[in-house]
């Protein structure tokens, strides 16, 4: 048996045939891109000012990390330092927007979902706010908050909050009445109905809301950081492009995409698997 065959059988055992096939198929477009990228460099089709050699991306990590050792530099968020600072800065904003946006979005979404009066009060303003894409707020946010944390957080929250609010609202409305009735006939009060019926019942929709808000929020954040930020990956890309450090721009873009894939695969999909998939409320075709 050849080494390749042995490796293939080992991998199949580790991941399972179906999953392995899925991973392999999904890797093909990336592999094609990488090969073309490498060919571009070796064949000298486009000059490195447009498309830098793959190797320089690694070097960019090194140069960007230079001189920012120590927790103090990381926490100070000075933009001269730091690749890690930019990553942490962007991640921190996303994290903070979720910490604020998820509970408040769910709370108001549940209220609007169960009370006609709340829905009448909140829906129009929600539609109004949703119509204004995150990025349209940037100029105004800069006037109000200047460049930096508040502006970027404001843009993010604008995206995150309303998406979670609307998805929770729709989710609560979709919970079959009979669940509520059955808990009521067992003597359950409003609070029991909220925590034991509305929220778990709306969870498929809430999880969708969180995934959407992270997807859209992440994009809005990068844009906000470019114009109204003083740190973060969006800011880093913008500054690097202005200084013609094309390999840093490439690195930034790659990191943005990779970070999103990691959050989605490692956080959101397992969350879905352990709740609503376990309860048979949604399923995945595989």
């Amino acid at each position: 048996m050849s080494v390749l065959q042995a490796a293939s059988i080992g991998l199949q055992k580790r991941f399972g045939r179906q999953r392995l096939r899925k991973i392999l198929l999904g890797s093909i477009p990336f592999a094609v891109l990488l090969v073309m990228w490498q060919m571009n460099t070796s064949m000298e089709w486009l000059p490195p000012v447009y498309i830098p050699p793959i190797g320089t991306i690694w070097e960019a990590i090194y140069t960007l990390s230079e001189g920012c050792a120590g927790a103090g530099a990381v926490l100070s968020m000075q933009y001269e330092c730091l690749f890690t600072n930019h990553i942490l800065s962007s991640l921190g904003r996303v994290g903070l927007s979720l910490v604020i946006g998820i509970p408040s979005g769910i709370a108001l979404g549940v209220l609007a979902g169960m009370s006609r009066r709340f829905a009448h009060a909140l829906e129009p303003i929600g539609v109004f706010a949703n119509a204004i894409s995150g990025i349209a707020w940037v100029p105004l946010a800069i006037v109000w908050f200047g460049t930096g944390w508040l502006t970027t957080l404001f843009i993010l929250l604008n995206t995150v909050f309303w998406l979670i609010f609307f998805n929770t609202l729709l989710g609560v409305r979709g919970v079959p009445r009979v669940y509520e009735n059955s808990v009521m006939t067992m003597g359950g009060n409003r609070w029991a109905i909220i925590t034991q019926v509305y929220i778990p019942g709306a969870l498929p929709s809430i999880v969708t809301g969180v995934r959407m808000s992270m997807g859209f929020g992440w994009r809005a954040l990068i844009a906000a950081e470019m114009i109204g930020g003083d740190s973060g990956l969006g800011f880093m890309i913008f500054v690097s492009a202005a200084e013609y450090k094309i390999e840093e721009v490439f690195l930034g873009v790659l990191v943005i995409a990779i970070m999103w894939m990691i959050t989605d695969r490692l956080l959101l999909i397992p969350l879905e698997r352990w709740t609503i998939q376990r309860w048979g409320m949604v399923w995945r075709p595989d």
Binding site: V178, Y179, N181, S182, T185, M186, G187, G201, W279, M281
Partner: peptide, 28 residues
């Protein structure tokens, strides 16, 4: 109003999908 002195078995499947059999039965 509703109260635990009257238990109801509904027409549709009214047990909660997010609770196991045991937790549904013990819900009341």
């Amino acid at each position: 109003g509703p109260g635990p002195d009257r238990g109801v078995v509904f027409q549709e499947h009214a047990i909660l999908p997010w609770r196991t059999v045991a937790r549904n039965i013990g819900h009341g």
